[in-house]
Design a protein around this nucleic acid. Structure first.
Lengths: 268, 268
DNA sequence: CAACTTACGATCATAAAGGATCAAAGCATG
DNA sequence: CATGCTTTGATCCTTTATGATCGTAAGTTG
């Protein structure tokens, strides 16, 4: 199918940066003329740059592709976590959705089965997913745009939070360190996340097991009795013990490995 | 029953992201023509995106789909107007881009030929176009999301403007009435537009000739000596007289079909 | 500078998919 | 119970996409 092939070529070029036509043709299992046509399409879209004998990923498409790749990693776990988080929603709630691929899954669930809620977010992708849904009132935080995860940050965003209050906050995390704290890769994002927590009656952190045990630069918050956590059931038990000891209300959700396998397969 | 099947297809596509017609037909136990009809229905609802041989779940259909239809009307004029507006930009300026299809063309120009500027906008589509461009600092206004033109509105957006100041504002308009005033179709948008004008050293209204002589509900501003206007050269001369009389600095730009063909590629 | 190699674009044939029309079956209503 | 409407499935025809072949252009090497 053409669409899948285009997507596959983009991902292939994202990983390899540049590749020959032959290489691409073999990778996606298509003939050379077809690959040429596809590259022509992708070039007009601005996603790739064609060269003699091959093609290179366009600079601007790099971040976009990186976002797609991150969204696809641990997709089954993220989906399951998103479903559990979604189940916490009740009509007429005021919910804040943080920027991140796991939280984005909650937004997708809402899009699938809308209920009358007010959604606040600092993530353009979330806003985009929830556009045009009856009963869902979307409010976007203002501020400086950070392209990596399509979020808004900065002093403007922080001061806007001062005037808002949420029943529920779903918070993402880049990593969860051995010290039992969540981390992000951006200073402003960390500060904004901290502030979100102070503006929500209840905060639920969404983080799949693969994020545990790593460390990013900027600490956000300790996972203690102020917070809920939803993760997947592949998390090592010593983590669960540590979390329980800290008083963090943890829920683990199961997910089917088949689902992720299926979705990995359709890339090629 | 039809509704059950539509729901089943939605859920199936949500899980799989994309699937072939055969796959869907087998999954829901219906014939191929039926599945096609269902997908047609779902596509008009904006729930899925059809491709050759299959369909995929609509991720971001909201913003671009609603926009694209209107974007194509008078596209040549809008592009020419956008180019002229772009030529007014200088490095290190602070520019506000209003929400609208004509102003969006300015953003596309900036993407094609970036220069170091700060861009402020209340339009998600503009923000999206200007994502990932080195040298272009994008700041998005916060507020309630209005899906029709992917803009943010409301008290939050207005109060955010109080703390900002721009060298240049490019303002769109739904219509320009016989009274020489610009109009929009939304009350909040009109109020926000008014406020934008007070926060900018210079305001340039972008409106192609087709918008003149119509009337929408909410008045924004009079086209007088406080404002610049860029329109196309198909505007009737009695309009030009009227604008000159009001003191509005008006520029008309020519456009021909060749120029629009030149820029077809940058749409995505 | 010339010849050879390689890649590119165009055209064409083929196979698959989409759209349209039509007939039949199910359901509601008079 | 009959009639009419909606819905479904089958067949036709058109469109689209893909892959092969050929001529041409470009790049490389002697």
């Amino acid at each position: 199918m053409k669409d899948d092939r285009l997507s596959a070529i983009r991902h292939y070029l994202f990983e390899k940066t540049s590749a020959s036509i032959h290489e691409i043709a073999e990778a996606v299992g298509a003939s050379l003329p077809t690959v040429r046509r596809d590259l022509l399409t992708l070039e007009t879209e601005g996603a790739v740059h064609r060269t003699h004998g091959g093609a290179r990923i366009a600079d601007s498409a790099g971040i976009e592709a990186a976002f797609e790749v991150r969204e696809q990693t641990c997709i089954a776990a993220k989906r399951a976590i998103g479903l559990t988080a979604y189940a916490d929603l009740r009509p007429d709630m005021s919910v804040f959705l943080d920027a991140g691929t796991t939280v984005l899954q909650v937004a997708r669930r809402i899009r699938m089965n809308p209920l009358p809620i007010s959604v606040f977010t600092n993530c353009l992708a979330v806003a985009q997913v929830l556009t045009d849904i009856r009963d869902v009132q979307v409010t976007l935080l203002g501020g400086r745009l950070r392209s990596r995860n399509a979020s808004v940050l900065g002093a403007l965003a922080e001061s806007m939070l001062d005037r808002l209050w949420f029943d529920q906050l779903f918070l993402g995390a880049s990593t969860v360190g051995d010290d039992g704290c969540t981390y992000t890769m951006d200073e402003d994002e960390a500060r904004l996340n901290e502030k979100m927590i102070t503006r929500a009656a209840r905060t639920t952190v969404l983080a799949d097991a693969s994020k545990f045990g790593q460390r990013a630069t900027y600490q956000v918050t300790r996972l203690d009795d102020r917070l809920d956590l939803i993760t997947d059931d592949s998390l090592a038990s010593h983590w669960l013990d540590k979390l329980a000891q800290a008083g963090c209300r943890t829920r683990t959700v199961g997910f089917d490995a088949d689902e992720s396998a299926e979705l990995d397969g359709d890339a090629a």
